[in-house]
Design a binder for these strands. Structure first.
Lengths: 224, 224
DNA sequence: TCCCTTCCATACCGAACGGTACATAATTTT
DNA sequence: AAAATTATGTACCGTTCGGTATGGAAGGGA
């Protein structure tokens, strides 16, 4: 699908789409030497580097070392550092934040929020993984050069907030939440607690402390 | 007091203390050419650069341009980039976060938390200043080189949390909060909301939205 | 087997980074 | 007025940054 567009050396922004057909696991017929590494596995290692050091703080040397590949391989497979980051964030959202989608499937608004915040607290304090959340540690400030990155992360977080708002709106319709409850406000509050917990986790707060915060936060939810 | 220790060219870490006697506004007798700029005013400009771009994202060129001085003057006055940042954060905590100390003087725990969160929301969305909070935007991730910076900021935030916890402990003693309320947990919750609001503000949330979050957050406070 | 295509490894690029040497300007002290 | 001391301006240092040119290695198609 993407293949026919590009041939040979391509413009920087095109490389990503060009390669995407194989990166995403679709084993189309290939010519030439096959790639010597698993692009998704390498992306998982890149996720951890960005997660721990942020976008700016993660150098290409850090990244390629962790990914076990060299620089040209990274550029061929992902395009450039920013594209690598975007793909890392997308994969992080799909796998490491799967609990968020699961929470939406809970039968009540309260159960949804409770499961989301507790699973979030778990994810923020997983042993063997960086503390905190890639979506926040990745980069808050930006401005001069990497403002795009901060905006991308903000949009990514906002998308999750809106999904939660839709779930809560349904709860209001169903009478599960009191009429007059603003789902957007409530969703924003929940995400605010989640993001604050991420800041605390990055600073070293342990899981028990995050749970204690969640318990208090849940008291703010409106009950029918 | 500090002066007699150092003479002429000094070790990097010593410069800060050496100059501190005049930076802090104490006009001791000086020899040699007087400084051509106001060190505190320059620090205020540095605060905004760090606030907007973070520690890593703020280059020396950005900083000295904003401060209106050249590089050697910066090094002579503050020591190095990290010391400049620490002094910026200290000044930020003293002036830009004065509302936090004022909130502690409110007569009740509820009023303290309400004032703190609302004044915080105001500070996060001041027109003409960077959105968000230096204590968080300054740098969350760290790790390789600037791990010290992230730790310093975390310690700074924790100090505020502990002051709030002390105020809430007093409220429990006074019967203003229900017996059995854990002041540390409650203080952490309040700071969590504040930090989450900072993340939202950095992403562009306006003041009204932060206020709506605060209104919901206040519902979690225990009432006697 | 030969060719074509693609990947990998090394070595490099210009630019930007934090930090500094050095000469000169502006003061106070003697 | 001369000496001593400190700040400023310029120009530079070595390192690291993101990104790339190039040649050889490794596979598929004919």
């Amino acid at each position: 699908m993407y293949r026919s567009v590009w041939k040979g050396t391509v413009a920087p922004s095109g490389i990503f789409l060009y390669r995407a057909v194989r990166i995403s696991g679709v084993t189309a017929k290939t010519r030439g030497r096959p790639r010597g590494f698993d692009a998704d596995a390498a992306l998982d290692r890149a996720i951890e580097v960005f997660w721990e050091h942020g976008y700016e703080g993660a150098s290409l040397a850090d990244l390629t070392d962790a990914m076990g590949i060299n620089r040209p391989s990274m550029y061929a497979a992902y395009g450039n550092k920013e594209e690598l980051f975007r793909r890392a964030v997308a994969r992080y959202a799909e796998y490491d934040m799967a609990y968020a989608r699961e929470a939406l499937a809970e039968p009540t608004a309260y159960a949804t929020v409770e499961k989301f915040l507790k699973a979030n607290a778990d994810a923020l304090t997983q042993p063997g993984r960086p503390a905190g959340c890639l979506s926040i540690q990745g980069g808050l400030a930006g401005g001069s050069d990497n403002g795009q990155v901060a905006q991308f992360l903000a949009a990514s977080r906002l998308a999750g907030e809106q999904q939660l708002a839709e779930r809560l709106a349904r709860a209001v319709d169903e009478g599960d939440l009191p009429a007059g409850t603003d789902p957007a406000d409530l969703a924003r509050y929940v995400m605010t607690v989640s993001e604050g917990n991420a800041v605390h986790a990055a600073a070293g707060a342990d899981r028990a402390r995050l749970y204690a915060t969640v318990e208090i936060a849940l008291r703010a939810l409106p009950r029918t």
